[in-house]
Write a protein that binds this DNA or RNA. Structure first.
Lengths: 200, 200
DNA sequence: CGTATTACCGGACCGTGGTCCGTTTGCAAG
DNA sequence: CTTGCAAACGGACCACGGTCCGGTAATACG
């Protein structure tokens, strides 16, 4: 019986060079995306800029969408946290409908600001994006609020519908091609939520 | 002044070999998609099966998504027509909310049946799918019905939201990964429409 | 039928996302 | 320090979607 506990291998000891390379890759991607625009940067270019082999890049981040998601999640960690622990109306304490509206408004602004990155992140074959962990936690959050606001509704279905209304593709289309001001998109979503979940 | 009118060049005389090749390509694609599954068929394979060069394939149908849309539109022409000229509740005559419900139900069934084809068709970078002509005509239809049902609503915004709820990606995710029976998706959409557009 | 025009053909070619595998290297134990 | 080995590296490699352009043949016209 060992006297010291085995290393907690929930994070099984990432090697130093691996960590350094990951930081390099993230930094390189951020730099290139900012300079050239997300759509104009190839994975090859990122690897080169990071001074790293292509294989390394793809091992760390399984594919392009995944890399984009990593960059996003750095910026969105605060938002996620506000949903659970922040002040109302985003965080707990406000009525569910108000929380949903605040959630939608926040997400719309956030996605509009980084729309190209989000489009890269949400663009995978099939419904890859619908299975990623950030989506799942949003889904869980929305589902809970819907159920709280109206126990009679099909919260599972409606949660996915509301999130579809907040997809990067739609937001960037509306505020881009369709030339709809962001404020109108936000009002539209608010109206949508209130119509859906007003008390009978 | 010419005695005979110039040829109507709205359809500027497609050459015989071109027409034959187009038919061959469509037939080959249909065959391969049915046999191997849409996702497992490359454009090369389609060209080969059709006995045609790759260039021909891509000139006729600009890209993969476009080819998929062509195959779909053959099957959906009838549906499109029913919307405008068919019997109620799909066609004119029924109250707008009923028409929307019928439209959604029909589209859900149709997309679920050909989900892989639709996923190929709706999967382009950016919001390509939101600018294609089939989408636009659906959008116009939905927009009109919303306005008729509730002139106070932001019909432009809501039309896109309802169509997002009917996207192939969402439908195929719900009825596939999420294991939600199609009937529940249909009921969910119906409920959604009624909540949104019930008279105050 | 002969000829000119030109749409159309086909496959070589390119860049990209993603994989594979022989080689290197950080790390820990002796 | 030496040694052993798993982990990580990197770039050659592959398949695919999409483009290009020199050659071909269908059509129109005389």
């Amino acid at each position: 019986m060992p006297t010291e506990l085995p290393v907690r291998d929930s994070e099984p000891h990432e090697r130093a060079d691996a960590a350094r390379n990951r930081r390099r890759i993230v930094a390189a991607a951020e730099r290139l995306f900012a300079r050239e625009g997300v759509a104009n940067v190839s994975m090859d270019a990122i690897a080169a800029e990071a001074g790293v082999g292509k294989g390394t890049l793809f091992r760390r981040f399984g594919d392009r969408a995944s890399l984009a998601r990593t960059l996003i999640s750095e910026r969105e960690a605060g938002f996620q946290d506000d949903l659970i622990r922040g002040a109302p109306p985003l965080g707990p304490g406000a009525p569910p409908v108000e929380r949903l509206v605040a959630f939608g408004t926040g997400l719309i602004r956030f996605k509009a600001e980084h729309s190209d990155l989000f489009c890269a992140a949400e663009n995978g074959q099939d419904g890859v994006r619908l299975r990623g962990s950030p989506y799942l936690s949003y889904r869980q959050h929305v589902r809970m609020l819907i159920e709280e606001a109206d126990p009679g509704a099909d919260a599972d279905y409606l949660a996915d519908v509301l999130l579809a209304a907040l997809s990067a593709e739609l937001i960037s289309y509306l505020s881009g091609t369709a030339a709809m001001p962001l404020a109108r998109v936000e009002r539209g979503f608010e109206d949508l939520v209130r119509r859906l979940l007003s008390a009978p």
